[in-house]
Design a protein around this nucleic acid. Sequence first.
DNA 1: TAGTAAAGTTAAGCATACTTAAATTATTTA
DNA 2: TAAATAATTTAAGTATGCTTAACTTTACTA
Lengths: 221, 221
Amino acid sequence: MATISKENYLKAIYLLTRENGNRISTSVLANDLCVTNAAISDMANKLSKQGFVEYKKYKGIKILSKGKKIAVDILRKHRIWELFLVETLGYDWGDVHLEAEKLEHCTTNNLIDRIDEYLNFPAADPHGAPIPNKEGNYRIQTDDTIMSECEIGKNYTVTRVNDRNSDLMNYLSQIKISLNKEIKIIDKLNFDNSIIVEIDGINHSLSEILVNNIYLKESKK
Amino acid sequence: MATISKENYLKAIYLLTRENGNRISTSVLANDLCVTNAAISDMANKLSKQGFVEYKKYKGIKILSKGKKIAVDILRKHRIWELFLVETLGYDWGDVHLEAEKLEHCTTNNLIDRIDEYLNFPAADPHGAPIPNKEGNYRIQTDDTIMSECEIGKNYTVTRVNDRNSDLMNYLSQIKISLNKEIKIIDKLNFDNSIIVEIDGINHSLSEILVNNIYLKESKK
DNA sequence: TAGTAAAGTTAAGCATACTTAAATTATTTA
DNA sequence: TAAATAATTTAAGTATGCTTAACTTTACTA
Ligand SMILES: [Mn+2]
Ligand SMILES: [Mn+2]
Ligand SMILES: [Mn+2]
Ligand SMILES: [Mn+2]
């Protein structure tokens, strides 16, 4: 059985794998989960024994299909809860992540399927992240670029934001950045990696942290 | 801080206190929580050190206001979740208790207050149990009698059922017993403590277990 | 390529929440 | 009231999931 801790480890390994490649190092995972390397080594052995991951000493952790299944299951619960909180209960998009972090572990498949149906089988969560369906398949293909790598002079649409920093998201709301918003890259400043963007005709300077947490897609028009 | 285990202990102590009187014995609590007496003694010491209960060796456990506060808080969450599952997601009343047992521990006060508002501040859960408000006060007075103590020939209304046995509740649905249903006590059989009742013009024999899990109020008409 | 720094693992220990088995206290009952 | 029985507590041990400190392996650098 996967405990709450194991569910969180598998979810983190799965998500980091998509960002950082095939094998995840102990310290990357330790940093992500805010625990010591020792805790990771310990848990990696347990997850490996249960067939959730492949773990070779000093060579990092690789998620296996059995572990991926649990990770996607938790991700589905997390994202559906986030959308439910925003859509049905009127939460701000910056306030849902922590609630979902807790709810995802005490939600049966039956319950999440009913909420999924209640929300009419949504494709994405309030931050633009894709929601896996009952079978674990994503309903939309995400095809976007991190803002830091976008090009000067082009117009983009906001497709996704990282949802872990509540303050960051509140700030985005304040300067009117939301999902599907049209923005234009005005300039990129190399000395501090900030980017000047135009939003609703107003120029804003976005810090390095900000541009590394926003994903865009080039506008068609 | 109160862990999930402590929340469950305090909730059980609180509810048993209302049934069994002021002090709860170790074995009554052990039976209710399906753990050994040793586990109860152990936890009773911890809860006592934290000021949630008063515990005197061999003399049982008494809940204190600090513990009662947590118990009522969890009860509020439990009952609001149960109602939400039935009202909003279309669950049967027999299928909500176990879901709520899990959800109640991972629900912030903010979240439950929003669901409470979404449900328009309900007074009772799907089984007729009163829902405490934000301040911990009950919105209705429960004034009912256990069916086993009702009188032959009188008409009653169903006010409440115990919600722990899913099969029992499914059976009640089957014979059309639901909240606010009008029923008449036809006969009480002393040899097996069963009761014959009339429901929708049809007579049913209800076993001892059943009549100890249904609460009634005498009809006015 | 040896030496050092960084990364990762192992060992020992702690808190929580249980268990079984032994010891103790309380309650019956003869 | 003394022995038997029942209820309860204490002791010792287990699993989980962490910690710090010590040790080992790998990577980098001169
Ligand atoms: Mn999230
Ligand atoms: Mn999200
Ligand atoms: Mn219940
Ligand atoms: Mn109930």
